[in-house]
Structures are given as C-alpha cells and as structure tokens.
C-alpha cells in the first residue's frame, strides 16, 4: 500500500500536521551515510541474531513436513535418501556449486536394512484451475504402480477442486494404479488397472493431478529405471 492516503478516504490521515519536522540546517552527507550505515548495521545485527535463533526451528519444521510427506507416499520405508538428477542420472551427491532448487529431485525409499531401494517419492506440479498444484507421489519402479499420493499445495475451488487435497477417497483412488494413469468419470471405469476415478464436478483439478504424475514420470522414467536397475544389482 502506498503511504499516500487514497483520495477516496474520508479525509487526511491522522491528527498531526503533515509538515515534516523542522530539518536541522545543513547536515553533512557524511552524517547521512553514517546514520544509514549504522542503522543498517544494527538492523543486520538484529536480524542475524533472530535468524540464528529461529533458523534451526524453521529448518527442522520444514524437514519434518517433507519427511512426513515422503514417508507417507512411500507407504512402507521409514527412511529415504534424496537424489538429484545430474546429467541424466540420479545421484545422491549434490555437485559442487549447484543450486539444489534448480535440479530435479526425487526421494528414494530405503528398505529395512537402510540400503535396499524401496520405491521413489517424486514431486510433481502442474497448473490447475486457479494456480499451480504441487504434489508428491510414491512410485514403485518394479511394476510402475503408484504407491500413494499427497497434494502439498493447491488453491483449487473450496468444496470442489480442493477435494484433490482434502478428500482422502480421491487420494486412495491412486493407490496401486498402473502408470501412465487414465482419469475416468467416477463409476464409469472399465476396471482397467490404470484408471483413476475423477471427482465429479472437478474434472480439471482431478486431471491436473493425474497429468502432473504422468508427465513427470514420462520425463524422469528412464533415469528412475536406470537407478532402480543399478540398485537391484
């Protein structure tokens, strides 16, 4: 919002006069810079301190949220490993100087022994009805089936499209389905293993989720398969 009172308001703001306080005559530029510099430094100091206090809490929370989601869609494993797509292959090691946000990232579930590959948790996103829908889905590389899905962020229509996030029945419809998925109208499916029931009245939102999974897999599948084959050996 601007500091300029909007003309539609009922009148000038505040009780005080609008004239600035009497400026001290001729302040040296040095003092101006110094004032700003010092206040900047103080502000920085304050921020750094607060950051140091809050950062671990925030990071831990983020980590927990991610972990929850990853483990939920992996449906089984209790630990996982983060993989980055570098030069067409997944590797757990982040190359020096690379920004992890710009790389495709998946999470490989680890079996009881802490080493065996047990499914992938894969993030996917696609523009939906209102805005981008982000989700995480668990995927079984052996037969290409979906283990579970969880919509992480969406701004779909409340009561309609947001059921992709809020309606457990919708998410349950993905479990065990073979990719690539095909959306069908609820109750109209033929029973094929790739069919997923869409939400009545929220076809666009439902299809967004399905398409996000399909396109992400289409892009990453070679690398995922290669990694799975490597791990199986």
């Amino acid at each position: 919002m601007t500091a300029h009172a909007s003309p539609i308001g009922p009148g000038p703001t505040g009780p005080g006069p609008t004239a600035p306080p009497p400026a001290p005559p001729a302040v040296s530029p040095l003092r101006l810079v110094a004032t700003l510099g010092i206040s900047g430094a103080l502000a920085g100091l304050l921020l750094v301190s607060v950051h140091r206090v809050t950062e671990p809490v925030i990071a831990a929370h983020k980590q927990r949220v991610l972990e929850d989601a990853v483990l939920e869609v992996l449906a089984g494993p209790t630990s996982y490993r983060t993989l980055y797509l570098v030069d067409g292959a997944f590797t757990p090691d982040l190359p020096a100087g690379a920004d992890p946000r710009t790389l495709d990232t998946v999470y490989a579930g680890l079996g009881d022994d802490g080493a065996r590959l047990d499914g992938f948790a894969i993030p996917a996103s696609k523009p939906g009805f209102q805005d981008k829908v982000s989700l995480l889905f668990g995927w079984e590389p052996k037969d290409g089936t979906v283990r579970a899905i969880r919509v992480l962020e969406s701004r779909e229509t409340p009561g309609l499209g947001d059921r992709i996030e809020k309606d457990p029945a919708f998410a349950a419809g993905f479990v065990g389905r073979t990719t690539p998925l095909v959306g069908v109208k609820a109750g109209r499916g033929t029973g094929a293993p790739s069919e997923v029931d869409m939400i009545t009245g929220a076809t666009i939102s439902s299809r967004t989720v399905i398409d996000a999974i399909d396109t992400t897999l289409a892009r990453l599948r070679p690398a995922l398969d290669a990694y799975a084959a490597e791990a199986a050996r």
Partner: peptide, 23 residues
C-alpha cells in the same frame, strides 16, 4: 536521524521488524 534520510531510515526499521516477525 537527519530529515533527509528520515524515510529511508523508517523503512529500514520497519523492514527489520517485519523480517523478525516473519521469522
């Protein structure tokens, strides 16, 4: 705070508090 840099200083102060609140 000298009058010339008054607004900048205020904004700096406000931004600092906002960041604190945010975190």
């Amino acid at each position: 705070v000298p009058g010339e840099v008054r607004i900048s200083a205020y904004v700096l102060i406000i931004a600092t508090f906002v960041t604190v609140a945010d975190m």
